[in-house]
Design a protein around this nucleic acid. Sequence first.
DNA 1: ATAATGACTCGTATAGCGTACGAGTCAATC
DNA 2: GATTGACTCGTACGCTATACGAGTCATTAT
Lengths: 232, 232
Amino acid sequence: MAAKRSGAQGKRSQRMGVEPPPQPNSEPALSLDRIVLTAVELLDAQGVDGLTMRRLADRLGSGVMSLYWHVDNKESVFDLALDSVLGYRGSPQIVGAQDWRTEIIDMLEDWRASMLRHPWSVSLLSSRALGPNILSRLELLGKTLSRAGVADADLNVAIWSLWNYLMGATITRTSFDLSGGDRAASQPRAGEPYPTIERSRLLCDDDWIGIFRKGLDALLVGLAPSQNRSLK
Amino acid sequence: MAAKRSGAQGKRSQRMGVEPPPQPNSEPALSLDRIVLTAVELLDAQGVDGLTMRRLADRLGSGVMSLYWHVDNKESVFDLALDSVLGYRGSPQIVGAQDWRTEIIDMLEDWRASMLRHPWSVSLLSSRALGPNILSRLELLGKTLSRAGVADADLNVAIWSLWNYLMGATITRTSFDLSGGDRAASQPRAGEPYPTIERSRLLCDDDWIGIFRKGLDALLVGLAPSQNRSLK
DNA sequence: ATAATGACTCGTATAGCGTACGAGTCAATC
DNA sequence: GATTGACTCGTACGCTATACGAGTCATTAT
């Protein structure tokens, strides 16, 4: 009988040394990496509901059940795809010379951009466990905040607040992108009892990144000690 | 042939005056209200994936296809259930006498509590259109911020920042509640390269409401003008 | 050389899903 | 008495994830 581990991965990786024949024509043989990569492609193209095991197998030129050798179930495909997309290579060489404030802002903006590049990742991230890439980002965030002078007692509040803000902003951005038509249509309705919303054209404002930056700035003002706020 | 409107609702509501016989025993006859109410029950009990048209019909004692007379499709069941759960009756009589700060905090905490009472609502809210109840809350938020001295030019940033923070916090809260076991298990792993996270026990901190309040406070500090911040 | 093992693929089958279609029931109206 | 429209629901279709078990093939053991 077959072994079929239950952990995360690593079934055919120990076949080191001799690689199987490169299969001159046709498909290049199934592998976890290829599955995850194709899953990301499919998610990018068709969204969360567009990823089915059948379609995934079709794209890979394999039978559906062959996937289940490399992968526990569909959920784990989501997990692997999500993790593969959220890596942060940062700017570690230049890091340290920078202001802590711009360092945090850079990292969070990169995070946001990564998620927006793969909009399905946002909804998945909020319902799945934290992978190593995510934990690394949180660690970097905590370290930078600490270096900026945030007391240990306030550290969790600061980290979670930034996390919450980032998640909310990104989710809102993607979901309003989808239903954009409705939003624009629902805004300028006159006679409705939303005068303030209408006046500020809240639902028409599409300067997403500007709003994100300004709100982030405000949050950092409230979170970090007032020191260290001389030059911008 | 039947009419079967396509808008939002209102198919049997025009049967005014004479109500159908109260059906002495058995089930009390299908109606949109009853469907929505039962859908909320089912969502509360079984979560988003637990709501299927078959189960809903079973609970209602009706055939599956009978639902489709009252409702366009499953998506609209979600929409209706969501809207029915997010109403805000506020504290309008006492309002105005209160500090704007506590007024905003009260409203947002109530909002958070409403969503946590029906955890499925969080994930739905971030992927569906804004219903009237939500718009009313946004209007109240904008009005209060305006009254607090936030300039019109900064109003959108303030509203969206609070919205983002609220959504992120609530989503995080519910999703970490689900996978709580993993979280506690993944935290104290020694030897891993997350010293800051471990030191602050970020993933073990379960003072959700405390973190929410403190972060909200920080955000308001950054968003609102520095005036008006004497007594707390 | 033969046998055995383990890695891997995949056809078939099951149970569940949303919903289109069309036939049926029943009260009110013409 | 016939017609209409509101409403219910059985059946069927095409889709889903995946359990099960049989089959292929290269490597290793004997």
